[in-house]
Design a protein around this nucleic acid. Structure first.
Lengths: 95, 95
DNA sequence: AGGATAGGCAAGCCGTCACTTGCCTGTCAA
DNA sequence: TTGACAGGCAAGTGACGGCTTGCCTATCCT
């Protein structure tokens, strides 16, 4: 479970999750392009690749290889464990 | 929002949140004792104090000072922003 | 077949972070 | 009032993390 938070601790990785939320199943180069063109993040391909490896190890993304392409898919199920551990109490909720 | 994930990235801080979930409004020394006695974590008082500062800056705990005691209270409302950003899709949920 | 494309592996650099050590401030009780 | 208790403020150290550089493998297209 610690891997999930470690993965989410980096702002670039959170931006990657945002990009996959908007358009799922992107490849490494697509993510690189969108990070530079839409978020002004000029990162090396290897840097993004390492970020994706961290996200995959945390279980937040799954990969599907097809030919020479590797597509990345978002998986938010690990986030559900957060709420089971520390229930979120909003205003007006019963104590 | 990045402060929340940075705060949750450390296992000791997550354990502190667990302790405050079980018993809210603890003081610094109480947390120290419970970390050592129940979680086998032998940390200095200052180390725990720094962890609490990080958690407070992230908005995950609030402090209430009374005399020479300072009580720490859990606040899980920042966690709600996680689900608003990346909706958790459980199995059997409508696409 | 051969070049171009998509991606992987490994070492190195630099900043941040967790933790300690040392000392100082404020509050309560005897 | 003086010590004991609860907490705070730094500065220093060692390790981990993010990023780059350089090179290598695999797949597709002409």
């Amino acid at each position: 479970m610690g891997d999930v938070f470690k993965a989410l601790a980096d702002p670039t990785r959170r931006t990657i999750l945002d990009e996959l939320t908007e358009r799922d199943g992107q490849t490494l180069f697509e993510i690189c392009v969108r990070l530079t063109s839409r978020h002004q993040l000029s990162l090396t391909r290897q840097a993004v690749s390492q970020h994706l490896a961290v996200l995959e190890e945390a279980g937040l993304i799954t990969t599907r290889k097809q030919g020479r392409y590797k597509f990345h898919h978002l998986d938010t199920t690990p986030l559900a464990a957060i709420f089971e551990r520390w229930p979120v109490t909003r205003k007006g909720q019963a104590p």
